[in-house]
């Protein structure tokens, strides 16, 4: 009886955890662009941004959304956020990566 109870309990807990898993958005970085160049998130909805670097070290920085990731080709960086306000946010590469670095950015729309 006890075993059945704990089995049911773990199914409920696992189910709840699966339901609340944040949506995952994948982004890749290479000199001097992010792909995709624009994403749209929902206010109040948790989301995990999984950001990879294809060619060398890059940064992924957006102050208002509290995004501050160091990217390198040997690992995928990840941040889970819940946007609290709507708007158009510019995320930049903040690891200097060469002559086009100043324009390496992408847009994060929060609706």
């Amino acid at each position: 009886m006890k075993r059945i109870f704990f089995t049911l309990l773990s199914v409920v807990i696992l189910g709840t955890a699966q339901e609340t898993q944040p949506r995952v958005v994948t982004i890749s970085a290479k000199r001097f662009e992010f792909t995709p160049s624009q994403i749209t998130l929902k206010r109040g909805e948790p989301v995990t941004l999984r950001v990879s670097a294809e060619d060398r070290d890059h940064g992924f920085y957006q102050k208002d959304l509290k995004l501050e990731l160091d990217l390198s080709p040997d690992h995928v960086a990840e941040a889970t956020i819940t946007p609290e306000k709507t708007g158009r946010f510019v995320a930049i590469c903040d690891h200097f990566c060469g002559s086009g670095h100043g324009n390496m950015k992408m847009i994060i729309n929060v609706e």
Binding site: Y61, K63, V90, I92, D94, G102
Partner: peptide, 12 residues
């Protein structure tokens, strides 16, 4: 200081 972070005018 954060002068204009989206222009990379800041220091982490």
């Amino acid at each position: 200081f954060d002068l204009r972070p989206d222009w990379e005018w800041f220091t982490r």
